[in-house]
Amino acid sequence: MNHACRREAEVVRAAGQDRWTDELRAHLAACDDCMQAAMVAPWMERFSRISDREHLLPDPSIVWLKAKLLQNNADVSRASRPLDIVQIVAYAVVAGGWAALLTWRWEAVKTWLAGFTPTAIVSNAARAESLSMSFFGLLFVLASFTVMLALHTILAEE
């Protein structure tokens, strides 16, 4: 049987206050659960009464205020979650854009970068033809987007 003995509460009370009746004592003889309860009840009673009242509980108005502040913070972070997701997507798009652009014209970029010295820039200016205007256009758009994203991240953190 897994049900509590219906006299358990009575036994706990009697043991805690040391007020036994003959009937309850007789019940103890037949009930192991109540016997165990009676064994520890006086100690638990004393234990519950040891003073901890010198401890001051936080004021309810403080708890209320803190809870409201936490709630507001939670609301703010919930509201800004879509923005966070957009930001992560933007990082991914920019990184992907750079990777795609460089992969697309890697050989030409490598050559262009290899001659990226003051004299070579002048003498090899003609070679830049290998990088089309559309490439430079894309480069400009992507660079602008990267700068905007970086500024947004910095300003948002501040």
């Binding site: 043991a15 009676a38 064994m39 520890v40 100690w43």
Partner: peptide, 19 residues
Amino acid sequence: RKRLGELLTKKGLAPEVKR
């Protein structure tokens, strides 16, 4: 309860419960 009873007995704090 049994465990607490054992601890109290070990420390000599268990009450005498007469059946």
